[in-house]
């Protein structure tokens, strides 16, 4: 069980900052996901932890001790790469055994540990195959077994599912999570798929241009985003410009939206009188006989749901409804917002 603390991590490439000030932590056995758009510094962070890159500043503490001086090969971290990085000239068994072989472990122990590892990822019987004869999902399983067999102190995964199709991705995501839980390994997981991040992590760090924009549980990130950036990256959300009329409790406010008023939750300590953004998830929107009038701009049928956009007080608002509800583009509807799926954000409207 390993505990990790990353503080003030900085890294530039040729004067271009890739990491500005990354702070993260992982409790023993926790799965931390780094989520963010392309180029925000997820891989760079992971490569600094793994030891492939030396950061320009900041520190990485593992169980209270800085690992920056520990050479890569002595860190005992299991790394799973996006393109698997299996050794093409070695069989599945040889690939998995490699980390034990270079540790000069006895042949009998290697054989039993490799067999156990292959069984764990469901590859028993494929040991003699070469990587190129395996499917993408099977190759990723080999990569996972190879990283786990050395009993790593930390598991680092960089977009391990990016090259798999949707069906397989779910299956592999569940497998990785199950193994990580069973063995109690602390893990860092990089992805830019928000569903993947939500479903299989204890905490999510949403990254933005070399910084951590928000670091919290998936629920908190989804329901109480600190900015429009985070809200947009964790799922569909509309941001409505509203006027803050009054504060009741420290985190409950009355806001004005067009002619209507409503009570919503929000970040603590916002000052009344100014304009703010109200983050509204599509499922907050219901149509009824009364409410704020709005015009349906578009609507599309998705089978399980019906989704679209209305124009409300001159602003776009995404909605999702039961597929059988009658919503017609161009018609006027009356909108009610469920405050439980809305959040007043500390970011002021420009």
């Amino acid at each position: 069980m390993t505990e990790v603390r990353i503080a003030g991590l900085r890294k530039s490439f040729g004067g271009q900052p890739a990491l500005v000030d990354v702070a993260l932590e992982a409790a023993p056995g926790e799965m931390i996901t780094l989520l963010g758009p392309s180029g925000c510094g997820k891989t760079t962070t992971l490569r600094c932890v793994a030891g492939f890159l030396a950061p320009d500043g900041g520190d990485i503490l593992v169980d209270g001790r800085s690992i920056l001086d520990v050479p890569l090969r002595r860190r005992d971290f299991g790394v799973v790469f996006q393109n698997y990085a299996l050794f093409p000239h070695m069989t599945v068994t040889q690939n998995v055994a490699y980390g034990l072989r270079v540790r000069r472990i006895g042949a009998a122990e290697i054989a039993s540990r490799v067999a156990a590892s292959l069984a764990e990822v469901g590859l028993t019987g494929l040991g003699d195959r070469l990587p190129r004869t395996l499917s993408g999902g099977q190759q990723q399983r080999v990569a996972l077994a190879r990283a786990l067999v050395i009993h790593p102190r930390l598991l680092l995964l960089d977009e391990p599912l990016a090259n798999l199709d949707a069906q397989l991705r779910q299956e592999m995501r569940a497998l990785i999570r199950a193994v990580q839980r069973r063995q109690g390994i602390t893990a860092f997981y990089v992805t830019h798929d928000q569903a993947e991040a939500m479903a299989s992590s204890d905490r999510v760090a949403v990254m933005e241009r070399g910084r951590v924009a928000q670091f919290a549980t998936p629920r908190e990130i989804y329901q109480r985003p600190v900015s429009r950036y985070v809200a947009a990256f964790t799922g569909e959300a509309s941001a409505l410009a509203v006027t803050l009329r009054a504060a009741h409790a420290p985190d409950r406010y009355t806001v004005g939206l067009g002619d209507a008023q409503m009570e919503v939750p929000g970040a603590a300590g916002l000052s009344p009188g100014s304009r703010h953004f109200l983050m509204v998830r599509p499922q907050a929107v219901t149509f009824g006989p009364s409410g704020i009038p709005a015009t349906v701009r578009e609507v599309a049928f998705f089978g399980a749901t019906q989704q679209g956009e209305v124009e409300l007080a001159g602003q776009a608002l995404r909605f999702v409804t039961d597929p059988n509800e009658r919503v017609v583009a161009g018609e006027t509807v009356h909108v009610t917002l469920d405050p439980a799926h809305a959040w007043l954000m500390p970011e002021a409207a420009a």
Binding site: A50, G51, F52, L72, R73, R74, R75, D76, F77, G78, V79, F81, N83, A85, L86, F87, Y98, G99, V102, R103, R146, A147, I150
Partner: peptide, 12 residues
Amino acid sequence: ALEDASNSLGAS
């Protein structure tokens, strides 16, 4: 990445 993988697995 193959060399990275090898090094991270503890190889000299």
